[in-house]
Design a protein around this nucleic acid. Structure first.
Lengths: 134, 134
DNA sequence: GTCGTTGCAAAGCGTTTGCAGCCTA
DNA sequence: TAGGCTGCAAACGCTTTGCAACGAC
């Protein structure tokens, strides 16, 4: 498989990056399409998938795998180590700073730990208010 | 949608439960099919999907959602609180006892924490040996 | 005999790929 | 002009559903 050397600045690619900058949270391909379409009319879902993958290969975006989702979400690369909070009502994913750093002791003997992911579930503040207000 | 009241003891269902008892780790529908087929020849994948869902509804199995997988794995219900280790080579999922219990401080103000999942990635001891031996 | 259950095949659905034309550099 | 990029539609792979036959109780 050959690597492409250059990457052109197309309106579609710019629109996608703008969507990520404006949202500040991990986006699914479908969310990215919806948020980028206003900046690039006619944008196709196939283009979104191809670009998310390309941009991740070039370390512009970072793939974020979350439980129960077969396709990765993506977020801008270069953020500090953080984890995610998944709201069970609105299904948006928020970033959470910090990390419970005593993970090493959990690793079984003989296993090699390379990475870890912590996902919190519950209600975001918006959904909490909406629900308790009712 | 009506609930079924009773649940019959079919050979297929017994075969699936045996597969879970013998493996002691979370199984995907495909893994469950492969491990259960020896106990119930001709077992179909549709039957596996239907049974895993039924058994989870009845709290015999527990759905386990892991990052990057759209469909839940399942494990026997009633185990102590634990997390999972995902081997990047053989893609098997192992159970990990214990938990980094200082998670509360991570939750953003106004959010409600209901549950959490910790997933470790790396090499299991089998794959580590296989790789370093080569 | 009743009705929950099964295997098969078809239907769904989200993701990927092939292709001809478009557009950036 | 070269070749990366795009939209469209077809292809794919996995999960779900419809259905007639089967079998537990």
């Amino acid at each position: 498989m050959q690597r492409k050397i250059s990457q052109r600045k197309t309106s579609q690619r710019r629109a996608l990056l703008k969507a990520f900058e404006q949202s500040g949270r991990p986006l699914s391909p479908q969310e990215a399409l919806e948020l980028a379409t206003p900046h690039a009319r006619g944008l196709g879902i196939a283009t979104v998938y191809r670009n998310l993958k390309d941009l991740a290969d070039r370390s512009v975006l970072k793939a974020v795998n979350l439980p129960g989702e077969s396709t990765a979400r993506y977020e801008l690369w270069g953020k500090a180590h953080h984890h995610h909070f998944h709201c069970r009502l609105c299904h948006q994913v928020y970033e959470v700073d910090g990390c419970p750093c005593n993970i090493e002791p959990l690793v079984p003997a003989g296993f090699v730990l390379e990475d870890h992911e912590v996902v919190l579930y519950g209600l975001c503040s918006t959904c909490k208010k909406r629900r308790s207000g009712k």
